[in-house]
Structures are given as C-alpha cells and as structure tokens.
Amino acid sequence: MSEISVPVAGDAHPDLEHHPEEHASDRQFVKVFLGLVVVTAVEVAWAYAPWADDHAGRLATALYWGGLMLMMSFKFFIIASYFMHLRFDSKVLTRVFYAGVVLAVAVYLIVLCTFQLFSNTTPGFAP
C-alpha cells in the first residue's frame, strides 16, 4: 500500500508552508522597531507641518491626509508582517487577517459615506 501522508501543523500544501529558516533574527527585529520609531517621529512632525494648517489649500490638505494615512498603513503592514510573523507564516493566515481588515475598511467607508462625512454638509443625523 502506498504511503499515506496526513497533514499536521507545519506540514502541508505549498500555500500553507511555514519557513522557519526565514524567521527574522533578534537584530532584525530591533532594526524594524527602530524603523517604526523613526516613521512615528516623522508622522508627529508631519501633523505639525505648514501643510497641516486649517487654512491651507486643497492640495496641502490632500498632502497632509495622504502622508499620514500612508505612514499609518506602512506601520500597520510592517508590524503585521514582521512582529506578527505573517511574512514568514502560512499565506492562509495572511488571507484570514487581511480579509477582516479589508472588510472592515470597506464596510465603514460605506457607513461614513452614508452619513455624508465626505460632503460639505455636517455629518451624522443628530442635530
């Protein structure tokens, strides 16, 4: 009879493979942390930059929002990839987690649009 292979943790489809040899070293984790600290510092400085002024033009406002959102997303992605090991773990876990993230962003963007957040009127229904 041919050999029967039973999937156990860490032994499965190529899509589910773990790559323990590719795990980051402690030194790499420290480097990632320092990178995150630098991005956070830039983020705080960005929030006080001239383009963050209330009376700045539309382009400046777009730059202000875009910059902060980009840095926030970058930090989110780096923490999930390195500290939460998604980069080195099974792709199924990446899909499970980012499915939740994408669903949350999509659902609540629709909610915010329904409440007219992105129009010139006051958002929400309460007086």
Partner: peptide
Amino acid sequence: ELVGHDHEHVTSTGIS
C-alpha cells in the same frame, strides 16, 4: 503518522 509527529494536532490546513 501521529506518533511520528509527537502527537501534534491533525488539521486540514497544517496550521494548529
């Protein structure tokens, strides 16, 4: 197979 893997959980995904 189970004894060989030190009684790890058997899952269809290979993830515990």
